[in-house]
Design a protein around this nucleic acid. Structure first.
Lengths: 241, 241
DNA sequence: CGTGGATTTGAGAGAAATCAAATCATGTGG
DNA sequence: CCACATGATTTGATTTCTCTCAAATCCACG
């Protein structure tokens, strides 16, 4: 199944330099395909996965539930990413992984991943780097919920998704598909669904964005960045030498 | 300088299994000592470090500033940790690193770290794992600021510090040194300094904690955990097989 | 003893949550 | 093709948590 390796390579190449040997090794990976519908749990908090899943098509949420029923989305994953790559070295899951949309996933055994990293230090570094970029995005999310109020917070999230999707070619003139509900967005931002709705209205009223059924468009990039205090550096796009 | 290797080994051993060869390799690392006073910037946002720093004594904050002067503490680092280990693979810093107290630091060149990881896959995994635990803690901080209100949020932070410090033997019957100001705590939690003060008073009034000059004590662990919804699983303490 | 930072207190304002209900899709089955 | 059910979005009113502003007190230190 070439598409799996292709998705992974495309995404890795956004932030890493891969040589022919690396690419060959990735093509050689044994990947088990799985198609899932929307809103399905892929991996559960507390379990011990023996494989990680490569997302090829669709969106995936990492989610953490609080004891009193609160729900926090920790990250939104896009094609080419491996949302539970951390389980390669953190044996017990500390959060859930679930599909947002119809998804095509490719499961790769941890043993195979370990072999590849042992044989190709450059790939090991690339995968490590991917988990570090995850971490950098987590850090910015802490800032987002901790420091920004609702309007810039929403703007920042949308800008991040725009920037990351642009990296893998999933934007068309500042528009991108993100088929999530307003409740989903509220779970990303730590806001109530009602307030999320009002914030989105405000952004539309200000002609900063447009939304129709899961298609978001940034109408005024520079004003949005200004509003959100957005600086893409934390995404570490482009292989830095 | 044995103390550097010792601090690192103690901390790594909390979450990893190290063999004699690993320990020997760590002792062989070339480490440059540096003593810093409190409130000193170790590494700045936007720079490209060529070494990472091992914290041996004291506390270090990772900090992110927003364009409008907001300050968010991203993590509090304790002895044995390498707060900027991510710079090994993410060349440009996306946040600041600064001392909180008097600190003893040991700087290790990235080249040396890379050599060690290339020669000892088990150490590579251990270091990768440390950065993944960082990530797990970031995730929980997102939940903390996103989902919990002020009182449980503060309780959660204190419980986390207690649990982590216990791992390296820096607690005495539920008490631990954490010489930070209330303003520091407010920057950790995304609260105002005034509200932080009121929250601390409330926790003391409820006989949940006591504080005197940088020494915090958890007076009622189970009620605190109940209040905070605290589950230590995300810290990944103990080497999971 | 004075100075500056840290903590504390009080009062008022503001951002966001909650509660409740209406409206708007969307998709299903008769 | 329409009636209906279900979930998503929207609106309005009210409450609550947290912030801001301003000032007082406390404390460590030179």
């Amino acid at each position: 199944m070439v598409k799996f390796a292709e998705a992974l390579i495309t995404k890795l190449a956004v932030s890493n330099k891969l040589d022919d040997g690396d690419i060959h090794a990735l093509h050689g990976l044994n990947i088990r395909e799985k198609l899932l519908g929307p809103r399905v749990t892929i991996v559960s908090d507390g379990t011990r996965p023996t494989e990680s899943c490569l997302l090829v098509k669709g969106y995936v949420f990492r989610i953490k539930m609080t004891p009193d029923g609160g729900k926090q989305v920790l990250s939104i994953h896009i094609p080419g990413e491996v949302p539970d790559l951390q389980s390669l070295h953190l044996k017990v899951m500390d959060h859930d992984l679930e599909t947002v949309t119809d998804c095509t996933l490719g499961f790769i055994a941890h043993d195979d991943l370990k072999n590849v990293t042992r044989q190709r230090p450059n790939l090991a570094a690339a995968l490590w780097r991917e988990t570090l970029i995850d971490g950098a995005i987590f850090r910015e999310w802490i800032v987002n919920v901790g420091q920004r109020e609702a309007l810039p917070r929403m703007a920042h999230l949308l800008l991040e998704m725009h920037e990351r999707l642009k990296g893998i070619g999933l934007t068309r003139n500042s528009g991108f598909e993100l088929p999530v509900t307003q409740t989903d967005l509220s779970d990303c931002l730590g806001l109530s669904a009602v307030h999320t709705n009002r914030v989105l209205q405000e952004l539309r009223r200000e002609k900063l964005i447009s939304v129709n059924r899961g298609e978001f468009r940034i109408l005024d990039l520079s004003r949005m960045k200004e509003l959100a205090g957005f600086d893409a550096a934390y995404l570490h796009l482009g292989p830095t030498i």
